[in-house]
Design a protein around this nucleic acid. Structure first.
Lengths: 242, 242
DNA sequence: AAGTGGTCTAGACCACGTA
DNA sequence: ACGTGGTCTAGACCACTTG
């Protein structure tokens, strides 16, 4: 099945990409178990150690999860992962608190220039646009504008249905088969608009932390644009550099 | 030398920590070559594969660097690493530009409460406090206040010597034997003070991005507190989530 | 040519979870 | 008891760098 010719791509990378392809294709869904290392080794006619190295890299990228004695599984977006990897707002003690959310708006709209460029859409495409407010310890702290390409999220947002779950990435995964694997964020300081100020209970012009996130699938396809404006009086964005 | 008893700490972790201890002790300096995998395996009476696994983890943590055909080296803070790992400001095109720096102030001072707590100092300790302004494409964009514990940086800042290099982490490494391996950052939006505004050529009250960084050694000892205030009109803080 | 890291194999034993 | 992942070994060959 696979061979390692001199100077060619290493076997374990070929196998890693083979597994990625099968995952992307949807052959296994989040939470599913994949064949054991021995089974894969026999199937692909390589040694168990080589399969192991391929899997190790996917575990490090949070694509797979190993459980000793049980097997290897497709990673899924549980609350822990969402909070640890994709939510960076902490309180003054450095603790992350799960926010409450209230959706204000959820409609299909024609994509703006910015949405088209950031989400790599065709001109004239539509997006599902959501606006919501997030509460930290019951205080309105974050305002989010979320844009989703229509063609990835069919049957969603056709009516102004504001009954959205708190953790959207779980919804994307379970309802639409879209798993967010990575994201690029750009942070800036901006002044609160009248609209922002009213919703966050502030004076217009107050400095807010703006986070512009583009969320990507395993294949690096952009599937969500999320712009968050945060009141950082009692909270901050936490980042660790290794 | 090392053994792997049932249920005990894995050999490769013992070896990894053994190497970390030798590095922390200063036995090898940044840029130095360490013994080959075979030599270490013989010295420690384990197989080469086990040494390899220990080294691999330190390479992933940017403690060591492997060069095929040459050997394994203690990582050092070249410009590339400083820019890729420890400098997160990009321009609108997403490119990182090396900033120019001009120091305004460099003195020994009694540590403030904040410095004492963030740098884990004894009450009454002194710090070397540096203020500098950084230019991106010749425009004043970032204001930095840097605090260094006196006892780690002897013979530094006794006079108001503002002739500092642009990349401070290289200086810490080469002059004081201190290597920064990781950092924690907290980001907030603040309003520019009169002082900030004058230096950055802005109106007072303009929103600025404040980055409060605590830089740590390999042993996680805090050795630098750096507060940066950035004008994010033409730049942003870039973060990638995996 | 000799030595280094990089890949790959085959096989051993252990720890863990399930049946 | 069995299968899974986790650790460890011993040895092979390759690619790259240096003398």
């Amino acid at each position: 099945m696979f061979t390692h010719k001199n100077g060619a791509i290493p076997l374990y990378i070929q196998i890693r990409e083979f597994l990625v392809a099968r995952i992307s294709k949807g052959e296994w869904l989040p939470g599913d178990i994949i064949p054991s290392e021995m089974q894969l080794a026999q199937e692909l006619d390589v040694s168990q150690g080589t399969v192991r190295k391929a899997i190790t890299e996917l575990v490090e990228k949070n694509v797979l999860t190993r459980r000793q004695g049980r097997g290897t599984f497709i990673a899924n977006h549980d609350i822990r992962r969402a909070l640890f990897h994709f939510f960076h707002i902490s309180d003054k003690a450095g603790h992350k608190v799960l926010p409450d959310s209230k959706a204000l708006y959820c409609r299909r709209k024609k994509a703006t220039q910015k949405e088209i460029s950031k989400l790599q859409l065709a001109p004239g495409s539509k997006v599902i646009r959501i606006e919501r407010i997030r509460f930290l310890t019951d205080k309105p702290t974050i305002l989010e504008t979320i844009s989703l390409p229509e063609h990835f999220f069919n049957e969603f947002g056709k009516v102004n249905d504001c009954s959205l779950p708190n953790m959207l990435y779980e919804l994307y995964e379970q309802q639409f088969g879209i798993t967010i694997h990575s994201a690029n964020e750009e942070l800036r300081a901006i002044a609160a608009s009248e609209h922002d100020a009213a919703l966050l209970n502030l004076e217009a012009g107050t400095p807010l932390l703006e986070i512009e996130r583009i969320a990507l699938t395993l294949e690096k396809t952009p599937v969500e644009l999320r712009i968050s404006r945060c009141n950082t009086k009692n909270h901050h964005y936490q980042n660790t550099i290794f």
